[in-house]
């Protein structure tokens, strides 16, 4: 399991987390390359289905990175995102994938360090949890198709 490199999808709000990622880059801070960033106009744009589909396609972990509480560019998109993530957590627990594989992370546009640290921490958390259980079937499918 030591060499397990988890695939992590990070839905990042354009106004904060995505800019924070940019800031991390400008600051020459390194963060794990297995974190795949998807820029969204607001964390509130991320629906439960976006998260579920990421897992269905084999992501080992997903996080939604939005603005600090009270700082959402669209007023309450980050609050909505947190509620949706809580809903998905329950669903993932219900099907045995594990709700701890999804999280909400909050930061401002200037928090490059927090972005890099969150990416490292989350990667470590998922590394401990091991691969997404659906991966085995996806791998079989891939090798059968290849």
């Amino acid at each position: 399991m030591d060499h397990f490199s988890p695939v992590i999808v990070a839905f990042c709000c354009h106004y904060c987390a995505y800019t924070a990622a940019d800031m991390a880059g400008s600051m020459r801070l390194s963060y794990p390359s297995n974190v795949k960033i998807i820029r969204v106009p607001c964390s509130g744009k991320v629906s439960a289905l976006h998260i579920m589909r990421a897992f269905q396609k084999g992501a080992d972990g997903v996080y939604v990175a939005g603005c600090l509480e009270g700082d959402c560019h669209f007023k309450d998109g980050n609050i909505k995102a947190a509620k949706r993530v809580a809903y998905v957590k329950k669903m993932l627990d219900e099907i045995g994938i594990g709700g701890e594989r999804v999280e909400v992370i909050r930061m401002s546009a200037g928090m490059g360090e927090r972005f890099a640290q969150s990416a490292k921490d989350f990667t470590e958390r998922i590394r401990k949890l091991g691969p997404n259980p659906v991966r085995a079937v996806l791998n079989q499918r891939e090798s059968a198709g290849a």
Binding site: R53, F55, Q56, M91, I95, I97, P133, V137
Partner: peptide, 14 residues
Amino acid sequence: LLSSALQMARMKSG
């Protein structure tokens, strides 16, 4: 959503 959840639950059991 349910479709996604059911498919994953199945995949989990191989």
